[in-house]
Deep mutational scan, measured.
Amino acid sequence: MGFKLLSKLLVYLTASIMAIASPLAFSVDSSGEYPTVSEIPVGEVRLYQIADGVWSHIATQSFDGAVYPSNGLIVRDGDELLLIDTAWGAKNTAALLAEIEKQIGLPVTRAVSTHFHDDRVGGVDVLRAAGVATYASPSTRRLAEVEGNEIPTHSLEGLSSSGDAVRFGPVELFYPGAAHSTDNLIVYVPSASVLYGGCAIYELSRTSAGNVADADLAEWPTSIERIQQHYPEAQFVIPGHGLPGGLDLLKHTTNVVKAHTNRSVVE
């Protein structure tokens, strides 16, 4: 069995187990497998329904001669939608809004960016022009300005110390501490036991640490421990890039980060 097929099978099995364990909360999309990078042309966006009122959005972007996937989250909030992270750029984010209108038909009224990198804030200006209120932590807003990236308009308070959590509509926002970046936030959907790890969490097929220019490698494993301790009931975990899975993604990420750190020390 090929690795790609095995990865998709694991996603399907995880979703099936969740649907059985929580039949009222989960209505997993039966329309197909989780979209992969090879299936999404740059400039297009796919939506994948995880649970009743919960979707991931998947886009792709060219970077350094390669094409990478990027995940975000959409959560229903009454007759409105909360968006977590842009679709990595203005063109993708405009396509995301169009796809949401086509498939869901509810307005996106608020959006949260989970850290300051372009795959999370690139497209904020498109959201703002569409009347979406954009939010991020003060740290993310400051770092985005320093980096020359787009800056969300509103500040999220109460997320300055490791372990801080605040309720934001249908989700809980959690600051686990520094990891992929010093400002990275985690998003949890309690009604569906869905954990969105953003770039602080890796997919299972990833074996290298990737972009760690703004990471705190020493603190990252401790931050992941905080996530595990705060959300032990999480059933569906979405990484910032690639295929979702279960809580095993947290341990896998820790292993990859520690291996990278150990290699760096040896070198």
Score class of each variant (00 low, 15 high):
E147Y: 15
A215M: 06
H117T: 00
S137E: 14
L247I: 00
L217P: 06
Y68Q: 03
S7T: 07
H241T: 01
A94Q: 14
Y202N: 14
L204C: 15
S191R: 09
N255K: 02
G177M: 05
V11C: 06
I50E: 10
V132C: 11
E101P: 03
I40P: 11
I84C: 11
R128V: 10
S162Q: 15
V146M: 13
S27Y: 05
W220D: 01
R76W: 12
V42M: 02
S62P: 07
A25I: 05
Y231V: 09
A200R: 05
A209I: 12
V126G: 12
G72C: 08
R167H: 00
L247Q: 03
G32Y: 01
R128M: 05
T93H: 00
A259V: 05
V45F: 06
I17W: 03
S191G: 11
V189P: 00
Q61P: 09
T182H: 13
A259H: 07
K91Q: 14
K8C: 09
D183F: 10
T153I: 01
Y135P: 00
A15D: 11
T182S: 10
H154E: 15
L143D: 03
N184R: 01
S30Q: 08
F236Y: 00
F26N: 04
Y175Q: 04
G65K: 13
V67C: 05
I186K: 00
A218Q: 08
L143A: 04
I74H: 00
H57L: 03
H252E: 09
R76S: 08
L185I: 02
R226Q: 04
A90T: 14
T261F: 12
A111K: 00
P239A: 09
I227V: 09
T93F: 00
D214Y: 06
Y202W: 11
R206A: 09
Y34G: 08
L250F: 11
Y135R: 06
I151F: 15
V75E: 03
T182N: 05
S22N: 08
H260V: 06
Q61E: 06
L250R: 03
V75C: 09
F116K: 09
E233G: 05
E150H: 14
R142Q: 04
E172C: 14
G246P: 04
V212I: 05
A144M: 00
E99R: 09
F236W: 05
K4H: 14
S139A: 15
P107Y: 05
D248W: 07
I201N: 05
L143K: 01
E145H: 06
A130L: 02
L81K: 00
Y231M: 14
T36R: 06
G43R: 09
I151Q: 15
V257C: 06
Y135E: 02
P69H: 06
A19R: 03
F3M: 12
L249T: 14
L82A: 14
F63W: 03
V257N: 00
D77V: 05
V28K: 06
S70W: 00
E267R: 05
V108H: 01
N184P: 05
I151R: 12
T109S: 08
S208E: 14
I227H: 03
Q229F: 11
Y196D: 06
K91E: 14
K4F: 01
Y48K: 03
N149H: 00
A218F: 10
Y12R: 10
N71Q: 06
A259N: 04
T36A: 05
S31P: 07
P170Y: 13
W55K: 09
S16C: 05
V237T: 13
S161V: 13
R142F: 01
S161E: 11
L156K: 14
A178T: 12
K102W: 14
S160A: 09
W55N: 12
L83E: 13
L106K: 15
I17F: 02
Q235I: 15
A59C: 04
F174R: 09
R141P: 15
A234F: 01
D85H: 00
D216P: 08
L13Q: 11
V237L: 13
T36P: 12
R46Q: 04
G122F: 14
V45P: 09
A51I: 10
G123S: 15
F3Q: 13
I84R: 00
P41M: 12
E267L: 03
Q61I: 08
S191K: 07
G65D: 03
K91T: 14
I50W: 12
L159V: 06
V237K: 02
H241L: 04
S191D: 15
S38N: 12
A234E: 14
A192R: 08
D85G: 01
S62D: 12
V187M: 01
V124G: 14
T86S: 14
H241E: 01
V28H: 00
L247K: 10
A90H: 14
I104R: 03
Y188E: 06
G122T: 11
I100Y: 00
N211V: 12
A130D: 02
G240E: 02
L9H: 09
H117A: 00
L204N: 15
E172N: 13
T114I: 00
N255H: 03
I20W: 14
Y188Q: 11
G122R: 07
F168Q: 12
S30V: 04
L204T: 04
F63R: 03
L195I: 15
G43L: 10
P221N: 15
L127R: 02
G32L: 09
R128T: 05
E145Y: 12
L82C: 14
G53D: 02
T109P: 11
G158D: 15
Y34I: 07
D29R: 09
S70A: 08
A129P: 01
G53L: 08
V256D: 14
S56D: 13
H154M: 01
V54R: 03
D216L: 09
H154G: 05
L6W: 09
A215F: 06
A213S: 10
P176K: 02
S56V: 06
L156G: 03
P69C: 08
I20Q: 12
K102S: 07
G169A: 13
R226V: 13
A200I: 11
T222I: 08
S208V: 12
L243N: 15
W55S: 05
I17R: 04
H180E: 01
H117N: 00
E233I: 11
S16D: 05
R206K: 14
S7E: 12
T60I: 15
V54Q: 14
E101C: 08
V146N: 02
D248T: 15
S155Y: 08
I227S: 07
V126N: 06
A66M: 07
I227Y: 01
L13K: 07
L106N: 11
V189C: 12
V42N: 11
Q103F: 00
R76A: 04
Y135G: 12
A90Y: 04
A19D: 15
E172S: 11
S223A: 08
E157G: 10
E80K: 12
E145M: 03
A111W: 03
W220S: 14
H260T: 03
A87N: 00
L73K: 01
H260P: 04
N184T: 13
G169T: 09
Q228W: 11
H241F: 02
E225G: 07
S16R: 11
S31H: 06
V126A: 15
G169W: 04
H154N: 14
D29A: 06
L24D: 05
G197V: 08
I201R: 02
V121Y: 15
R167Q: 06
P232A: 06
A90K: 12
E99T: 09
S162C: 13
K258L: 08
G122K: 04
G123C: 02
A21D: 11
T153S: 15
V126I: 14
L81R: 00
L204K: 15
S160C: 07
P244I: 15
T114A: 01
L24S: 12
E147W: 11
R46V: 06
A200M: 06
V146P: 02
E33I: 07
E147F: 13
D125E: 12
N211A: 08
S62H: 03
Y12W: 13
F116E: 02
V28E: 08
E157D: 08
N262L: 05
K251H: 00
D248H: 08
A15I: 02
W88Q: 00
V266E: 06
E233S: 08
T253W: 08
N149S: 13
G89F: 05
P69I: 14
N149W: 07
G105D: 14
V266R: 06
R206F: 07
I40M: 13
V75S: 06
S7C: 09
V54W: 12
G210R: 10
H57G: 08
H241R: 01
Y12F: 04
G148S: 01
A98V: 14
V194D: 01
V45I: 13
G198Y: 04
T153G: 05
T60N: 03
G198H: 00
L156E: 01
S181P: 01
Q103E: 08
K8G: 06
V257L: 15
E150Y: 00
E172I: 15
R46E: 08
Y68S: 03
V146F: 08
G169S: 07
A90W: 10
S162M: 02
N255V: 11
